[in-house]
Every structure is written in C-alpha cells, then in structure tokens.
C-alpha cells in the first residue's frame, strides 16, 4: 500500500486519554461523574443534590448527542453516538 501512496499518513485512532474524556462527555454530559458520595456531601452542605445541568436534565444530554450527530463527530473521532462508544 505504501508503495502506491508513498505520502499517505499512518492511520491513528484518538489518543486514549481523549477517548475517556469524550466518552464521559457524551454519556453524562460532563467530564466528571457525580458519585453518590458527592451527592450526599452536596446535600449535607445544602446545595442542590444535582445541578440542573446535564447531570440531571436528560434533554441537555440529548442535545449533546444531536450536536454530535449534526457535526459528524464520528468522522473526526470515531465516536458512535448510538452505541455511546468508540468505533475505532
């Protein structure tokens, strides 16, 4: 293959650290997960147990997936929005 296309770039999938971050971004809408422990800590402090963002709003998460589909995220990164995981 390389003889026919000598200038072809080697294919590389996304770096693994990118994958973890993007996966959680599209699965929960944020980078860090809100664990049960944090939720109880937040309640103890008198904060809303989950912020009204994608942490608790399924519509916001749905919006992210729609943006991912509209911008063709799969082409750039290999992330399949339907399976919520990386295809490559």
């Amino acid at each position: 293959m390389n003889e026919i296309h000598p200038l072809r770039k080697r294919f590389r999938s996304l770096p693994s650290s990118f994958k973890g971050l993007l996966r959680s971004e599209l699965r929960i809408g944020h980078i860090y997960e809100l664990t049960d422990l944090t939720v109880s800590d937040r309640e103890d402090l008198g904060l809303p147990s989950k912020p009204p963002t994608a942490y608790s709003d399924p519509n916001a998460l749905e919006a992210l997936k729609r943006i991912a589909k509209a911008t063709n995220l799969k082409k750039d990164t290999g992330f399949d929005v339907d399976k919520l995981d990386f295809e490559w």
């Binding site: 770039k9 080697r10 294919f11 590389r12 999938s13 996304l14 770096p15």
Partner: peptide, 8 residues
C-alpha cells in the same frame, strides 16, 4: 503533534 500526526 495531534494536528499533524493524530497523536500526543
């Protein structure tokens, strides 16, 4: 490195 080689 990411722009040109897709790696870090």
């Amino acid at each position: 490195a990411y722009k040109h080689y897709h790696t870090l």
